[in-house]
């Protein structure tokens, strides 16, 4: 049913989604903590900035990244000057774009979990001689595990589902940037509906089972 090309695309997609989710969990946790607890003037702006990828057409994000990371862009130039390859049309470039694109899907559930924490429990830990980082790992983190679960699932699934950003910055290179959604697009372009059906059905099945397991795991909350 699935061709070797399809399998390459699937494994590339899983690799991209897995790495993106991993990187995002590391970045999003301190960011979400800051957003949940800061009272500084920049809180609203930072919140809006993080949520931006929710609203923008993915092509806009991809376009600006292409400009920024490209050989003439500010980041691209500095990378070239230290002897690095530029990022567009490479897996790394795709990874950077995916991290930005899926950021709100990981930050927001964690931020909601942190905001919902009972502050008094954190203070209780402090009076029981726990240092701030200790309090975070021994009280805040275990009590926010539903938020982290939701963040992981949404971040992963949303990266699997990305298309516009990939097309803008990743292009269509087999084994490097051709993810499942692009592969599907190719099939449809070339009128190969038979192959498109199998891949599309697989994605529907994936999306449904991901959401189902998420609701199942969070049912107790």
């Amino acid at each position: 049913m699935l061709s070797p090309e399809d399998w390459t695309a699937i494994s590339l997609t899983l690799k991209l989604a897995g790495l993106t989710t991993g990187i995002l969990l590391v970045i999003a946790t301190p960011l979400a903590w800051h957003l949940a607890y800061t009272q500084r003037w920049w809180k609203a702006s930072l919140n809006a900035l993080v949520a931006l990828p929710l609203v923008l057409p993915p092509t806009v994000l991809g376009f600006y990244l292409l400009i920024l990371l490209g050989p003439k862009g500010w980041v691209g130039q500095s990378m070239k000057s230290i002897g690095l390859d530029t990022l567009p049309f490479s897996f790394t470039g795709l990874l950077v774009a995916s991290v930005l694109y899926s950021l709100p899907f990981v930050v927001q559930p964690i931020q909601a979990a942190f905001s919902g924490l009972d502050r008094r429990l954190l203070e209780a830990a402090t009076t029981l001689q726990a240092r701030p980082l200790d309090t975070f790992f021994s009280v805040a983190l275990p009590l926010s595990k539903h938020g982290f679960l939701t963040a992981t699932v949404l971040g992963f699934a949303h990266t699997v589902g990305e298309f516009g950003v990939v097309l803008m910055i990743g292009g269509n290179i087999s084994g490097e940037t051709r993810v499942v959604s692009v592969q599907l697009y190719d099939y449809v372009e070339s009128m190969n509906y038979q192959a498109a059906h199998s891949l599309a059905a697989l994605l529907v099945l994936f999306a449904f089972s991901v959401l189902l397991s998420l609701y199942y795991l969070n049912r107790g909350k």
């Binding site: 009972d118 008094r120 203070e123 209780a124 830990a125 240092r131």
Partner: peptide, 20 residues
């Protein structure tokens, strides 16, 4: 002294036990 360095016990109005 930081709060976590002070040798005191604090009992809150609601017990504030760790639910996990």
């Amino acid at each position: 002294l930081a709060a976590y360095q002070r040798p005191l016990g604090y009992v809150f109005q609601e017990s504030c036990l760790f639910p996990h």
